[in-house]
C-alpha cells in the first residue's frame, strides 16, 4: 500500500523521542502511584532512607505524578517544542537528583550496592537520549499550519 508523502513526513521521524518519553512518563506515573499507595514498602527499603528523610512519600509521589503529567501532555502536544523540552528537563532533573541521592547513599553506606546507581543512571541515559533526539525529530517533521514548533 502506498503511503501519501504527507503521512510519511508526519508518521516516521518524530516517533522516536515520543516513544521514549511515553515509556518514561508511564514509569514515573507508576513510581508516583506506588509512593502514594504503598508508602510502607518505601520506608521498609533502606535505599530510600535518605530520600524519604528529605521529603515524605506523598511529596515525592506528587512530584513524580506531576512530572509524569507534564510528559504525557508533551506526548499529546508533541509538536510543541517548549512543552517537550520542559518535560525532558523536569524528568532529567528528577531522575538526576535521585541518581545523586543514590550515589551519596552508595558513598556513605557500606551496606548498599552499586545497583541502584547503575539503574538510575541507565534511566537517566534513556531520558537524556530522548532529549537529544528531540530536535532531530522536530526539525525534520512537517508541522501543519496553525501548530507552533516553539
Amino acid at each position: 500500500m502506498n503511503t501519501p508523502p504527507d503521512e510519511i513526513a508526519t508518521a516516521l521521524p518524530h516517533r522516536r523521542h515520543i516513544v521514549s518519553l511515553m515509556t518514561i512518563a508511564l514509569g514515573h506515573a507508576a513510581i508516583g502511584v506506588a509512593l502514594w499507595l504503598q508508602p510502607e514498602r518505601w520506608f521498609n527499603t533502606p535505599s530510600y532512607a535518605n530520600l524519604l528523610s528529605v521529603a515524605s512519600t506523598e511529596v515525592w509521589g506528587s512530584v513524580y505524578l506531576a512530572v509524569s503529567a507534564v510528559m504525557l501532555l508533551a506526548v499529546w502536544r508533541r509538536r510543541n517544542r517548549f512543552l517537550v523540552v520542559t518535560a525532558h528537563t523536569a524528568g532529567i532533573a528528577l531522575v538526576g537528583s535521585w541518581l545523586i541521592a543514590f550515589f551519596v547513599r552508595y558513598l556513605t553506606d557500606d551496606g548498599t550496592t552499586i545497583v541502584n546507581v547503575v539503574s538510575w543512571a541507565t534511566f537517566l541515559a534513556i531520558l537524556a537520549r530522548s532529549a537529544i533526539i528531540i530536535d532531530d525529530d522536530l526539525g525534520t517533521e512537517q508541522v501543519p499550519a496553525g501548530e507552533s514548533n516553539e
Binding site: 538526576g96 537528583s97 553506606d109
Partner: peptide, 15 residues
Amino acid sequence: PVELTTIGLAVATVI
C-alpha cells in the same frame, strides 16, 4: 548523608 542528599538534590535540580 541526609544533608548531602539534600544538597545533591538541589544541585542536580538546578544544574
